[in-house]
């Protein structure tokens, strides 16, 4: 390790200490607070099984919200990504579309949820709209990046035939970026289920509504039921995503499992 590195590390440590002081992040308070954690854990262990059906139903609602948000968001994102890709459009088209998408992405989903609660009132619909917006911003970005990364050889070869832009999109852009799309949708759904689980905090529906309310009233045992259901659901969705990815995406990318026809 060079002296220069030591100085850099020293400066970073000093900055963390100063920032902690500024924001009142005192490790001693953390240690002093540990017994409280023990109390919460103890109360959480008093899981109340009779709430399981309610929790499952709330989780089902959450998953449906995430599902609608992901599908609708992706459906809006795809055409936008075609206009945002630099290799398909002139600057006058892609620059404004990219600016719009960047603006959409600056808001985390919870802020979109607050905005939509104000617009359409409390409830699941506001949550769905928030997830749609968030999905549009991210899937469009991931997708236009995938389009820009398409091999230029087939793009050039097919353009040289003098086909229209729509034909180029249909026969080169979509097939060559589709495998990325499926994995992006899976990732987004997975992520949206977790996001939707906390939208209840601002009254935008989903299982988070129950969790925040029970915690507010110190009913940790009930909250624990709902949190465990979220954990189980997220793990399950993760597992299913991996299965789907292995079956469809890994195969198409590496040419594994060639059928013997």
């Amino acid at each position: 390790m060079t002296p220069k590195n030591n100085i850099v590390i020293g400066i970073i440590v000093a900055l963390v200490v100063i920032a902690s002081y500024n924001v009142d992040a005192n490790p001693i308070e953390f240690v002093e607070g540990l017994p409280n954690l023990a109390i919460i854990v103890e109360e959480m262990l008093l899981v109340e099984p009779k709430y399981i059906p309610t929790a499952l139903w709330a989780m089902f609602e959450t998953i449906q919200m995430a599902f609608i948000g992901t599908v609708v968001g992706t459906a809006i994102a795809l055409p936008l990504s075609m206009f945002a890709a630099r290799n398909l459009n002139s600057k006058y088209v892609y620059a404004p579309v990219r600016a719009l998408l960047a603006a959409i992405r600056t808001f985390p989903s919870i802020l979109w949820a607050i905005l939509f609660v104000i617009m359409v009132g409390l409830g699941t619909f506001a949550g769905v709209l928030a997830i749609v917006m968030y999905t549009v911003g991210f899937v469009a970005k991931l997708q236009y990046e995938a389009i820009e990364a398409i091999d230029s050889d087939p793009m050039d070869a097919v353009s040289s035939i003098g086909v229209s832009k729509w034909q180029l999109i249909r026969y080169v852009v979509i097939p060559e970026s589709a495998s990325h799309l499926l994995s992006q949708i899976l990732y987004m759904f997975d992520y949206n289920v977790r996001q939707t689980s906390i939208l209840g905090l601002v009254g935008a529906g989903g299982i988070g509504f129950y969790i925040i309310n029970y915690i507010k009233f110190f009913e940790y045992g009930k909250a624990a039921v709902f949190m465990l259901v979220v954990l189980a659901a997220v793990l399950f969705i993760d597992w299913v995503s991996v299965k789907i990815r292995d079956k469809y995406i890994v195969k198409s990318q590496h040419g594994m499992a060639v059928s013997a026809k």
Binding site: D151, D153, P154, D156, A157, V158, S160, I161, G162, V163, S164, Q167, Y171, V172, P175, E176, A178, S179, S252
Partner: peptide, 26 residues
């Protein structure tokens, strides 16, 4: 004007038939 580039320029994820039909798109 049929152009076969050095790298061939095939669309990898579509079938042989579809690749060939691209020539008829115009």
């Amino acid at each position: 004007i049929g152009y076969i580039p050095q790298s061939l320029g095939l669309v990898k994820n579509i079938t042989v038939l579809e690749n060939i039909l691209i020539g008829a798109l115009p």
